[in-house]
């Protein structure tokens, strides 16, 4: 049986942490699994929790009155679900649902924030990892905004 520390060690998001730091992080985590369609997080809830996906796929979506559930992005193994726990007002902005069975490490964000405040070196390393995740999400989002696979614009002559 693997410990939470083992699972943290295996997960790509915590690659840059040393062993002691991983142990600290693991102290705020637990194993959680979700069935197909089950909600990991719901828009408007307090963002006290986040998830490191170990297996399976999660969709982030938002509910629009005129369009129903609209998917923003899917996340999978090696990725993090939930960034709102990092900064005030600590509120979940999007729904997260399991596509098929999903295995995660679930973290208590409050607990981890406390540890980061107490240990700035851990805080810095962890923030750096999360800044990397956020940067690549932002870049991906911008690239998708371009709708590059859409029909070419303008009046085509050929």
């Amino acid at each position: 049986m693997k410990t939470i520390e083992d699972l943290v060690t295996e997960h790509a998001a915590f690659r840059d942490l040393d062993a002691a730091q991983r142990a600290l992080v693991a102290g705020c985590g637990r194993n959680r699994s979700f069935r197909d369609g089950e909600v990991l997080m719901r828009e408007g809830e307090d963002a006290n929790e986040f998830f490191a996906i170990r297996k399976g796929r999660v969709r982030l979506s938002v509910h629009l009155p005129e369009r129903g559930e609209t998917v923003i992005e899917t996340l999978q193994e090696g990725e993090i679900v939930g960034l709102s726990w990092l900064f005030p007002p600590y509120k979940v902005r999007f729904d997260a649902r399991a596509i098929g069975t999903v295995h995660t490490i679930s973290f208590d964000g409050k607990c981890l924030r406390g540890k980061c405040d107490a240990d700035p070196r851990l805080g810095y390393t962890l923030m750096k990892s999360f800044a990397g995740i956020m940067t690549s999400r932002l870049q991906s989002t911008r690239l998708r905004m371009l709708d590059v696979f859409g029909a070419p614009g303008g009046a085509a002559a050929d």
Partner: peptide
Amino acid sequence: GDFSYLHGG
């Protein structure tokens, strides 16, 4: 302008 035309512009 036409010289470097590529579908759309």
